[in-house]
């Protein structure tokens, strides 16, 4: 198998006596969707924070495309190709959808230290941003202020922003959260096609989506990965059923 794009090895993080991350190792291979599931309090958020750079791990390594990123600041990791969406939509609320994406295009192009050329007249920004909005089906809402978008549209916008970066690995934190059944179905189809762009580490509570999308699943309980495997392996794993899935599988 090819080298993993994103590799987390033996990651530890404690808050006092609480072991939030207890020797977690997860690999994300090219072209795959790897779902991370687990009950509330399992340490999913802490793990994501460590991958993104907002929480420092106590020990262990995180490598992206062969490069150790575990000690780099958030922005540096993003520049190296870690594209993330947030559990709760995190946008520049006063900017239009287009300008939110333009900011990411601008970041991808390198420098934000240009003081004189107006961004709205810069076709390299507006065209690229519009293209990403079209791909997520949000082109008609390009000029709507981000804070006025509906919940589902905000989620779409987050993905458009991630698409604007030269992403090597996506980290999607509960993209289905708060979506209606119809929206979830559309988004599931979209994520399925997104894996051609870059592999996806998908943290999700919506089991229908996880089972439909994931190539592999890791189950996190009390900061440990208790099982990693294909959808069928996980469905039939007795430990997983007891800890998490219950009757759902």
């Amino acid at each position: 198998m090819a080298d993993p794009v994103l590799s987390i090895q033996n990651l530890h993080k404690s808050f006092g006596a609480l072991k939030a991350t207890d020797g977690v190792s997860i690999d994300l291979h090219p072209g795959e969707i790897h779902a991370l599931i687990g009950p509330n309090g399992a340490g999913k958020s802490t793990l994501i924070h460590q991958i993104c750079g907002t929480v420092k791990p106590d020990s262990g390594t995180i490598t992206l495309a062969g490069r150790e990123i575990g000690r780099l600041p958030v922005a540096e990791r993003a520049r190296l190709g870690l594209g993330r969406t947030f559990q709760i939509s995190s946008l520049a609320g006063e900017f239009s959808a287009l300008r939110n994406v333009m900011l990411a295009v601008q970041a991808g192009q390198g420098s934000s230290f240009a003081f004189f050329k107006p961004v709205m007249r810069d076709r390299s920004l507006t065209d690229a941003a519009m293209d990403r909005l079209e791909r997520v089906g949000l082109a008609a809402r390009a000029n709507v202020t981000a804070s006025e978008l509906s919940h589902g549209e905000k989620r779409q916008l987050e993905i458009a922003i991630a698409l604007a970066l030269d992403v090597k690995a996506f980290l999607l934190d509960e993209p289905m959260a708060g979506m209606g059944p119809e929206g979830s179905k559309v988004l599931t189809g979209f994520l399925d096609s997104l894996r051609q762009e870059a592999p996806i580490l998908l943290v999700e509570h919506d089991m229908d989506a996880v089972f439909a999308l994931a190539d592999r699943i890791s189950v996190l309980v009390y900061g440990r990965v208790i099982a990693t495997g294909t959808v069928n392996e996980i469905r039939n794993d007795p430990a997983v059923r007891q800890a998490y899935l219950g009757d759902h599988a």
Binding site: C52, T54, P73, V74, A75, E76, A78, R79, R84, F86, S90, L91, A92, G93, E94, F95, N100, L103, A104, Q106, A107, G108, S112, I161, A164, L165
Partner: peptide, 11 residues
Amino acid sequence: QNDVRVAAVGI
């Protein structure tokens, strides 16, 4: 407006 978002796109 949102410095977390700005860092997440790499600025």
